[in-house]
Amino acid sequence: MDMTGEYQITAPRDVVWTALNDAEVLKACIPGCQELEKTSDTEMNAKVVLKIGPVKAKFNGEVELINIEAPASYTIQGEGSGGIAGFAKGHADVVLVEDGEGTILSFTAHANVGGKIAQLGSRLIDSTAKKLANKFFDNFHDYLSNDDSEEEEPTGQ
């Protein structure tokens, strides 16, 4: 499914850009993210717990940043395997535009799931993916507004 969104962030574009490239920030903001380890400047290994409908699984995968146009835009893409539950993959084009003192972050994202998670959760995928995307950017927004906030794990239940 495809998603788009736009957020107004009360921080300058450079700050937003730095945060978007900080593995610790991403880890704190990606819903269900348990581990995010940098393997190069643009690549990370991730462990994410994802729950769609009745299926809950831990996905092991890789996250990569491509099409980098600092500090204006990049594409973040990821692909993970949840074992018998299937796989999930997706990417988001993220664009930052200066807006006075703040920044407008807009994204278009596309996600796919496969295997059991698609078979049993298909009706819920669109809404779950939207929820997860929104949660990420909400978290991200909150993080920048309140730098030392403790993030909850929104899908850990």
């Binding site: 799931v113 496969g114 698609a118 078979q119 049993l120």
Partner: peptide, 14 residues
């Protein structure tokens, strides 16, 4: 099936 060949009607819920 969706275009990726994922079965969308894979339980009695669907």
């Amino acid at each position: 099936y969706d275009d990726d060949g994922q079965l969308l009607t894979g339980s009695y819920m669907d």
